[in-house]
Amino acid sequence: MNIFRLAGDMTHLASVLVLLLKIHTIKSCAGISLKTQELYALVFATRYLDIFTDFISLYNTTMKLIFLGSSFSIVWYIRNHKIVSRSYDKSQDTFRHYFLIIPCLLLALLVNEKFTFKEVMWAFSIYLEAVAILPQLVLLQRTRNIDNLTGQYVFLLGAYRALYILNWIYRYFTETHYVHWITWVSGLVQTLLYADFFYYYFESWKNNKKLQLPA
């Protein structure tokens, strides 16, 4: 464990907590893409298949349970909670996220660390996470006024993977044979997808005006 990875995990945890705060306290999911939440639930479900077979540390297992529990409960809230589901605008959240799942699955079958079910599922989760934010970014472009919590949620979610890139650089230089092209390339693509969001997020923060993404 290094400071970059711990900061990354804490940033990721913070993004989940901000989203849960928004949904649980103001009972609203306005501006939140259910499709991105469903993709993330699938990412964690396919990545943490080893949660009961490979014990790494209490920290690792605890965080996995938190990410699994929060992602599925957020999906449940938006789909089934009588008040929250009313603030979900189905007509705006139109990204065909199933078109993301198939290519990621095919790629995982071709490019993986070992051709076993768990490893293919793990690679699938890495590729899927790289593109999981797309429905959310498309929705943000359509959302006229993005509320602060939604903006912070997306920012933290993008920042966590950027911190992981620093973690991979650190581990490359401090650990022998630490090379993981699958996570490195996917993590870089994932972070680059946030590039224009980060730009507009900092602009709105610097000029102290409402966050607005150009359509």
């Binding site: 990875r5 690792n60 660390e113 070992k114 793990w122 993981h180 996570t183």
Partner: peptide, 10 residues
């Protein structure tokens, strides 16, 4: 198990 077989990152 070798180190790189178990994914130690979240």
């Amino acid at each position: 198990k070798e180190e790189n077989e178990v994914h130690d990152e979240l």
